[in-house]
Design a binder for these strands. Sequence first.
DNA 1: CGTCACCCGGCAAGCGGTTGCCATCAGTTG
DNA 2: CAACTGATGGCAACCGCTTGCCGGGTGACG
Lengths: 352, 352
Amino acid sequence: MEKEGESAPGPATGRAERPPTIYDVARAAGVSASTVSRAFARPGRVNAGTVERVRLVAAELGYRVNPLASALPRGRTSMLALVVSDVTNPVYGEIIRGAESAAAEADHVLILIDAQESVRLERGSLERILLGVDGVVLAGTRMSDSAIRTAARRRPVIVLNRDVADVPGIVLDDRHAMRLVAEHLAELGHRDVLYISGPEASWVNGMRWSGLREAAAALGQKVQRVGPFVPTVEGGRRAASALDAGRPTAILAYNDQQAIGLMRVLQSRGIRVPHDVSVVGFDDIYPARIVTPGLTTVAAPLRAQGEAAVTALLSSRSTPVPSRPMTLPVKLIVRGSTGRRRPLRIPPVALP
Amino acid sequence: MEKEGESAPGPATGRAERPPTIYDVARAAGVSASTVSRAFARPGRVNAGTVERVRLVAAELGYRVNPLASALPRGRTSMLALVVSDVTNPVYGEIIRGAESAAAEADHVLILIDAQESVRLERGSLERILLGVDGVVLAGTRMSDSAIRTAARRRPVIVLNRDVADVPGIVLDDRHAMRLVAEHLAELGHRDVLYISGPEASWVNGMRWSGLREAAAALGQKVQRVGPFVPTVEGGRRAASALDAGRPTAILAYNDQQAIGLMRVLQSRGIRVPHDVSVVGFDDIYPARIVTPGLTTVAAPLRAQGEAAVTALLSSRSTPVPSRPMTLPVKLIVRGSTGRRRPLRIPPVALP
DNA sequence: CGTCACCCGGCAAGCGGTTGCCATCAGTTG
DNA sequence: CAACTGATGGCAACCGCTTGCCGGGTGACG
């Protein structure tokens, strides 16, 4: 692709003209179309000299193999899809990166679909491209288990952070994460923890809540939860209004976005973090380290998750579906938003 | 390997089996394949009752039109590509949203390509999908003008924030933006402004710098610039080391990411923003409003830009290429990072 | 010098839809 | 009642590329 036969015959800069096909190249090179095809698809099958000649002529003509046409008989497109529930969520940035690089390495292109938090849109887009790709990674999908299974029956699918029967998945060790959080808070003296729920349809939300309860129970902490709230900064802001409930000294949000939104409202109300209340997030997205104070949060190996997803997808043609999803490790990143427990004084607040 | 002519509209949850084609549906519905094709592609062309019957049978069989197969003879895939230089940059979030919704409205799917700041990857991916989509939006591309033109010759292309001859583009009113910034700073008494450069290859970087110089000259301000620095938070951090140069009382960064990185370093050095120095960004990405102090920045109509790009792309088949790129308006969002000029005292700093 | 295993290029049958063109057929029109 | 028209469905030729199969040409081997 660096040679780039820029010397295209059609100097017109307007719209596309009919691009050359293998037949055009074949004629110009004095060989048959099959030879041209082979020269590109399986060079070893053709005499080296012929390959070179064909390639040369092709370059002169500005020929490129038409991916659609070649995908049809082959049955494979060399394209993978990554469906995310919301591209504007920084969590996906790293996942995308990981997936993209693994795909590139395997000589596939990764196409990204943004569901914009809409199940309808998600299903629609998925439906449209499903047959056009070699496999799909579902990240943060809002679709039902059965819808996911239906898709998985038609093309290899791998789900992130969710356990769908018969569909391979990659999840985080939420249970362990919750233990880390509970222990950290316990060490700081916190005995009342509030959990801010994410979407009800979220599998991880359930995992985190039950993991937190379990860990807290083992440490003698009391936990409560409020929600659900949307997994965005705005959701965190809204959650602030539920704070009087339970008088927690520490709050764990479903994700960093919520935690950040929450902190902002608290601070604007004069409630100091972590002096008056500690806040913990989940994901360790970039903004978590630029807010003041820095957000204590659970770091997930997002990039690795993206890579693993694509790798698993590509190997799934040969490997049988493992019955249990792959679990990735997490760690706690302690920053400024958590501190020693203080006498509580959170006044009831209401949204403006 | 999938000949396996087993019976089975099989409920198996394994890998994909050979999906039904229009021929299968045709046989089951007692019509010809063309009728099935038309029942989906142009329902008006077939008797309403027949359409319904075909659709019913198709649903039972689980038939879906194969997008690849239908795209081949039609020459159109109903897919548009949006190539961004770096998905993790929040700027693109809104652009993607806008593009996505405009595409969805036109019944197209938007596929996203992340160039990961790599020209090689960008060209490679573009090359791979160019013939597989109906058009491409290039956002923040690092490719050369000639490479862009070459692509534009093969498929409709539209560039964002760049003016490439013969290729339609959508840019922001950088000149006006710079005037707004200069005036705002002038009102606050600033007479020395430092511009932090973005990538040299960036067209907008040049536009902004010249726009700033022009506006500043008209207001009797002195401007200097340092750089280039990468357009990320990290780039902003690095730029902090160049601050002693020129002793500015106000700094304009290439984008918000840099501005944020810069602010963080300044603050960690005990330099107060805006008390000691004012900072202005560009783009108005989400983090700009969650940092402390809030970042004064130029707001670009990103979403509208994404929408306009797709709209222009879809209509480009009929409309000739406008000689001048479309220009979108901008406005200045004043937050806490800019304030009245104070007696200067920025000590030289060096990176750790 | 006859055989045989390769090497190589060509032929042609698809892959799954789309669509121009034609044949029907029923309903109109004069 | 004949000529005419519009609605429908089928036929078959692609779209551009892949690939199983075939056969001529060669060098190696016996």
